[in-house]
C-alpha cells in the first residue's frame, strides 16, 4: 500500500489532484482537464508506460463527461486510473496521441465515435466501427436504444414483437 500512497501524494502535490487507493495496486486520481496531459507525461516518465484503456463515462445529471485513462506500470505494478471531467456541451480535450502514438490514437478514435468527444491534436478521428451512421453518438446516455430500436425495427402490430413494448 505504501507505493500506492506515494503516487497519490506525488500527484496531489504537483497538480492538486484528489484521489483514493481502492485496494492493493489500484489508485484512482482526479485531476483538472487542463493538467491531465502533464500528469500523464509525469506518470509515463515514472514508469507507467502501458496505456491499458481510455474510457468515457457520461454523467448526464451533472452535464459532464468523465474521461478516464488507465495506466499500468510494469515496474511498480500499480494501476493508476486518472480521471478528469469536461463539460458535456463543450466536449473537447487535448489528445495524448503524441505520447503514445497508435495506441492512444485508436482509443481516442473509438471514444470520439461512441461519445462524440473531440480530441484536439488527434488527426485520425474517422469512424471506426460504424458505416453511414447519422444518429447521435450512440453511447451517450440521452440516446435511448430501446426507444430507437422499437421505432426502427419492431412494430406493435406484430404479435411476436409485442413483448418488446412492455
Amino acid at each position: 500500500m505504501k507505493r500506492e500512497i506515494e503516487v497519490l501524494q506525488c500527484l496531489k502535490e504537483k497538480f492538486g489532484a484528489e484521489g483514493y487507493v481502492r485496494r492493493d495496486r489500484r489508485v484512482f486520481i482526479t485531476v483538472d482537464a487542463e493538467k491531465v496531459k502533464e500528469a500523464i507525461l509525469l506518470l509515463k516518465n515514472k514508469g507507467y508506460e502501458h496505456l491499458s484503456a481510455i474510457s468515457v463515462t457520461d454523467w448526464i445529471k451533472d452535464g459532464e463527461f468523465e474521461i478516464t485513462y488507465h495506466l499500468w506500470s510494469y515496474e511498480s505494478k500499480i494501476l493508476v486510473t486518472l480521471k478528469t471531467r469536461i463539460k458535456r456541451d463543450k466536449a473537447i480535450i487535448e489528445s495524448i496521441s503524441d505520447i503514445w502514438g497508435g495506441n492512444a490514437r485508436t482509443h481516442e478514435r473509438e471514444m470520439h465515435e461512441l461519445f462524440g468527444v473531440e480530441f484536439l491534436g488527434n488527426d485520425d478521428l474517422v469512424p471506426l466501427f460504424l458505416e453511414d451512421w447519422d444518429g447521435p453518438p450512440p453511447f451517450r446516455k440521452d440516446f435511448d436504444w430501446r426507444a430507437y430500436v422499437r421505432e426502427k425495427f419492431y412494430s406493435m402490430d406484430n404479435e411476436r414483437e409485442r413483448s418488446y413494448y412492455d
Binding site: E49, H50, L51, S52, Y74, W100, G102, N103
Partner: peptide, 10 residues
C-alpha cells in the same frame, strides 16, 4: 519490445 509496450500489446 519498445514498440510492443508503446502500442499496448499484451
Amino acid at each position: 519490445a519498445r514498440e510492443a509496450i508503446k502500442l499496448g500489446a499484451t
